[in-house]
Design a protein around this nucleic acid. Sequence first.
DNA 1: ACAAAAGTGTTGGAGATACACCCATGA
DNA 2: TCATGGGTGTATCTCCAACACTTTTGT
Lengths: 244, 244
Amino acid sequence: MNTTSSSPLGPDVRSLTFDVSVDNVVFGFDGEELQVLLIRQGLPGEDMGAERFHMAVPGDLILPEEGLDEAAARILSNLTSIKDIYLKQFHAFGAPDRVFDEKDREWLTKIRRYPNRRVVTVGYYSLVALEDYRPKPSSFASRAEWCPLADIPTLAFDHNSIIKAGLEKLREDVVHNNIIFELLPEKFTLGQFQRLHEIILGKALDKRNFRKNVKRMAEVVPLDEKQAGVLHKPAQLYTYRRQD
Amino acid sequence: MNTTSSSPLGPDVRSLTFDVSVDNVVFGFDGEELQVLLIRQGLPGEDMGAERFHMAVPGDLILPEEGLDEAAARILSNLTSIKDIYLKQFHAFGAPDRVFDEKDREWLTKIRRYPNRRVVTVGYYSLVALEDYRPKPSSFASRAEWCPLADIPTLAFDHNSIIKAGLEKLREDVVHNNIIFELLPEKFTLGQFQRLHEIILGKALDKRNFRKNVKRMAEVVPLDEKQAGVLHKPAQLYTYRRQD
DNA sequence: ACAAAAGTGTTGGAGATACACCCATGA
DNA sequence: TCATGGGTGTATCTCCAACACTTTTGT
C-alpha cells in the first residue's frame, strides 16, 4: 500500500519522483601511472561489432531497500566483479540536466524502465593497487578496463566531471589522511611510492626529502627482498603494515 | 549474463522511486559559542499549544527542475528567510531506514504528498555570524531559532547524525580553507576569534601564538575602534577584508 | 662501458610550541 | 580594590626546501 501509483493525492508522479544512482570512480595505480576503471555500455545479447556504445564509470540505480554505501559496493561488483575495496562517498550530483545527450537517453531506454526520469547520483571514489584487480565485465557492461587518467575519452552523462571531482577529493584525502596506501601493491619500491604521490599531487617531489619523510612513517616497513629483473640497480621492497 | 539480480530492463520497478531532499546545517557564532539553526515543525493553521512538534534542521524536498545547490538555498530561505549565505554540500544520507519513527511519519503525512516514499537527503552546511541573521519562520516551520550546539535535543529523522557529520566536515574545512570568516560578525575581537577556533577545533590554543598567527593574516585588519561597556579592558576590534 | 634508476646528508630558514606577567575597565 | 579578559616577547625545536654525487644491476 505504501507507494506511488496508489496514492490518493493524484497521478502526476512522473515529475515528482527521482531515481537515485551511485557512480564509482575507481582509481588504480600500476607503478607507473594513475588509471581509472571504466566500463563499456552494452547488453549481453547485443552485437558488439559497432563501437557506438559508450564508456562510463561503473554506476547504476540503487535498490529500494539498500543504503548508499551498500549500493556502491554491489553495483561495482555487478559490473566489474571487483569487490571488497575501500569506497568513499565524495559528492552528490543533481543538476537537472545531468543527462541531456541524445545517445545517453537512447542507452537508458534500453536498460531503464523509466529512462526519462531525473536521476540524482552519488559519487564514490576508491583506490586500489591495479595489479590486484582484474575487472571482469557483466550485467550491462560489455567491457571493463583500466584506462590511464590522461587517455580518458568523452564519457557518458556527466561522468567526466564526476571523475574530475573524484580526483580532487582524492588529492585532498591523500594529503590529510592515509588513504594512499590503498593504491599500492603489497610490495612496492620507494620509487613507485614517490611516483604515486607525484601523480596524485600533480607536482614533482624531492627524492631525498621524500625518503626522509617515509622513514618517519612507522607503517612503511622494509622487507628482506629486492626487486629483480630490472635493468638498473634493484630497489628495496617495502610493505605497508597498519598500526594498532 | 551473470550474477545480477537486475535484468537488462533494470531492477524491479514497483517501489523504485525516491524523493530527494536537502538538509541545511547552519552554524552560527555569537562571540561565545557555536549554535545551529533549527526549526520547529508546524503548519501555519495549526494550534501550537501542544509541544509535540519536532525540531529539525531546515530541509525539504527538491523540486523537479531544480539543482541541489539551488534547492538548498531556496529551502533555507523558505523556512527561515535566511538567504545569500555560503552553503556547501558535505554528504548524502541514504539509509533505507532514515525515517522510521512513528511521529516522523505522522508529520510527513501532513506535509508530503507521498509520505511513505523513501527519501535520500543531501546535507549542506553553512557558516554565518549569528548576529547578522535573525531567522523568521515560514512555510511548515512554526519557529526558527538558533540553538547552542551543546543543547541540541533529539531531532526529527536522522538530523542529529546529520549535524554531527556537518560539524566534522566544518572542522576539516576550517583547518584547510578560510571558511571560518563566514562565521564572524563584521567586527570582532581577537578573543572571539580565538574562542571560535577553539570551539570548532575542540581544543585550547595558546593566546600569544594565536595572535602571532593572526598578525600574519593580511585579511584581518584592525579598526579604529574598541569594545565598550565590557567589565574588563576593552579589546581592539578587527574586521575581515577579503584579499584580491 | 653504458644506461637507468637506487640510494644517501647537510644546511638554512620558517613556522610551531612553550611559557608568565602587566594593563585597562566596570562594579 | 578587585575581578575579568586584553595584551605582549623570547628561546627552542621541528619541519621543510634546496641541493649532487656514488652505487648496482642488465645489456
